[in-house]
Simulated scan of single mutants.
Amino acid sequence: MTQDDTLVRKSVLTTVVVVIAFTLAAPFGTATVGATTTPPSDTDEYAVVQGDECYTIKPIGDGHLTAEEFYDYRDPDTEPSSHSYSSHGTRHLQENDASLLFLHEGGDGLSLGVVHDRHGGGSEGGAATMTFTDLPENGEWVVEDDAYADRDDEFSHRNGSSRITWVYGANRTDGGVFNGGLDDEFSITIQPRFNEDAAFQQYDGELTDWQVISGNSTGHERISLNMNQPIEIRSGGCTSYAVSELDIDESVTTGESTAVEATVENNGVYAETFTVPITVDGEVVDEQEVTLEPGETATVSSSVTLEEAGTHTVGVANETMDVTADDGEQLPGFGVGVALAALLIAFVARVRP
């Protein structure tokens, strides 16, 4: 045997050993994905909380019109002008004897809007007083309906709070729009007083419904609120939780059950019951319910069975990892590691002088 032959055989032997080492190490053991927060709620979702009820809402608007353009308040001094002293841009939302609350996404960011009654709807007018607290300091009421001199409405603003009383006659609207600071996290409390409970009342008409408007794929939907209770409107949907420490075997056998565990934390401000989905390749295969106080964590456990060989994506909520399923048919009775070890023994025996 020449020296060159010896070097070649040693090189091949080293390669085989490295391949065996990687093969034996790779498929075994478990993997844990940790410390990655996965909020399941849409970033464009917001919540209206009243008593024990929580409603997830989305903004309306096309993202282009500013709050002032969308509301489109008109009086004899505006352009375009009108003697209606009303909102023309929200006519598709307005309802007789209803007070509306909405979030608007426009060219100037997110805004909070209020409009009472319906322009030209035949109502007899109305009155409402609302106190807004914890308004963002860098925001302002960009629309005050009405805005003319010597108006009957009263707008009082101080240190992140506003107290507004609206009174309006037949066939008109009143309202306003607050813009600024709402693109960050916020939580605003609104205390309503309608009709004879308002600070003052000048007309015979009455508001009979308080609604929050939420955007959806077909336009908008309405949610009726209790007219006698305050609400909180805040960023984030009603369900707000995070998933971390996803734990599952990286390699499993087809047809056999394997455990899945993850940590769930309530990162909202209310006690909530969450339905946490367990998924395989994007399809929900199980759901686990967990009730948590704010800041509390719990471990959710389940199991999955992969019926087909190959790589699959297993997840808890939006936290996922890839799992390889082996049906054992490639090298029956042994396994890749054992087969390569046998290959190494045979090779050593052959090259031994």
Rank of each mutant, 00 (worst) to 15 (best):
D97G: 01
I60D: 07
L65A: 13
V115M: 10
S99C: 11
D108Y: 00
A127H: 02
H116F: 11
D72G: 05
S84L: 05
H88T: 09
H88S: 13
L93V: 08
P76T: 02
E105W: 05
E68N: 11
L103Y: 02
E53G: 03
G107L: 08
S86K: 05
Y71G: 04
Y71F: 15
G113L: 09
C54H: 06
L65V: 02
S84N: 12
L100H: 15
E95R: 15
P80D: 08
G122Y: 00
H104D: 10
G126C: 04
F70A: 15
K58N: 13
H104C: 09
L65H: 06
P76G: 09
V115N: 04
V115E: 09
L65P: 00
H116Q: 14
H119K: 13
S123V: 02
S86C: 09
L110W: 00
G63N: 04
F70Q: 14
Y71S: 05
S82I: 00
G107E: 06
D117A: 13
G121L: 04
T90F: 12
S111N: 06
G126L: 03
P76D: 04
Y85R: 03
D75R: 01
Y55E: 11
G109W: 02
G113T: 03
D72F: 04
A98C: 10
S84C: 10
D52G: 11
E95M: 10
L101N: 06
Q94L: 05
D75N: 13
T66Q: 06
T56D: 07
H83W: 15
T66I: 03
I57F: 00
L101T: 12
D77Q: 14
A98D: 02
L103D: 02
A67W: 04
E79P: 02
D97M: 04
Y55T: 14
P80I: 01
E69K: 11
D62A: 11
E95Y: 12
A98H: 07
E105A: 13
G63Y: 01
H119C: 10
G106A: 10
R118D: 11
I57W: 02
G122C: 05
N96A: 14
L100F: 10
G122A: 08
Y71L: 09
H92A: 14
G89I: 01
A127G: 02
I57E: 03
G113A: 13
D97K: 05
L101Q: 12
A67S: 14
S111K: 06
T78M: 08
A98N: 06
L65C: 01
D77M: 11
A98L: 01
S84E: 11
S111W: 03
E105I: 02
Y71W: 12
S81C: 05
D77T: 15
Y71K: 08
K58G: 10
G122N: 05
